[in-house]
Simulated scan of single mutants.
Amino acid sequence: MTQIDLTGRTALVTGGAQGLGEGMARALAAAGARVVIADVQEELGGKLAEALGDQHGAVRLDVTDDASWSAAVATTVERFGGLDVVVNNAGIEVTQLLVDTEPDDVRRMLEVNVVGTMLGIKHAFRAMRPGGPAGRGGTVVNVASVAATIAFPAIGGYSATKSAVDRLTRVAAMESGKLGYGVRVNCVYPGLVPTAMGQKLAVETSGLGLFESPEAAVGAVIELTPSGRLGEVTDIADAVVFLASDAARFVNGAGLPVDGGMGM
Rank of each mutant, 00 (worst) to 15 (best):
L98D: 01
C187L: 06
L256G: 12
Q55F: 00
T75Y: 04
A134W: 07
V73W: 09
V241T: 02
T234F: 08
F80Q: 01
L224E: 06
G135D: 05
G182A: 09
I4G: 03
V140D: 05
N113C: 11
G137S: 11
S145Q: 04
V40L: 12
A127I: 02
N89W: 05
P103L: 14
D105A: 15
T7R: 05
V87G: 07
Y189Q: 14
A244C: 14
G177A: 11
V36I: 15
A160D: 01
I155A: 05
E175Q: 12
D259T: 15
V240T: 11
A216I: 06
A25S: 15
A58T: 05
S70Y: 02
S245T: 04
E102H: 11
Y181H: 15
A154C: 07
E232S: 10
D39C: 08
G32R: 12
C187R: 02
I155D: 01
G116C: 04
A220Y: 10
V241C: 08
T95K: 07
I155N: 09
V36G: 11
A17F: 11
L179Y: 12
P133C: 06
H56N: 14
G255P: 03
A134K: 09
G263T: 07
A49R: 09
R184P: 04
A244L: 08
S68N: 06
F152Q: 10
P257N: 12
A154E: 09
Q199C: 11
E93P: 10
G191K: 03
E175N: 00
A237M: 13
A202M: 14
R136T: 15
V183C: 11
A216Y: 00
T14S: 13
A74D: 15
V87D: 01
V99Q: 13
K162C: 08
S213F: 12
A49T: 14
F242C: 03
T225H: 04
G198S: 10
R79I: 09
R170N: 06
G156H: 03
P194V: 02
F242Q: 03
V193Y: 00
G198C: 12
K122V: 02
V146T: 08
A151W: 00
V94G: 07
P130I: 00
V188E: 06
L48R: 13
P130E: 02
G157N: 08
V115A: 10
G182V: 07
A30G: 10
L110C: 14
G16H: 10
R229M: 02
V106W: 13
V99M: 13
R126I: 00
A29G: 13
A254N: 04
A172G: 03
D66S: 15
V94P: 05
L83T: 13
I155C: 08
G132F: 05
F211H: 15
L201Y: 04
A164P: 04
H56W: 05
Y181E: 10
D100G: 10
V221Q: 01
I236E: 00
S68R: 06
R167D: 00
M264E: 03
I236T: 06
S245Y: 04
A25Q: 13
W69D: 01
D5P: 03
P257R: 11
N89C: 13
R129I: 11
P226C: 12
E212M: 01
E212W: 03
D246F: 00
A244S: 15
D235P: 05
G120Y: 02
L243E: 05
K178Y: 07
V114F: 02
G57K: 04
R107A: 13
R26T: 11
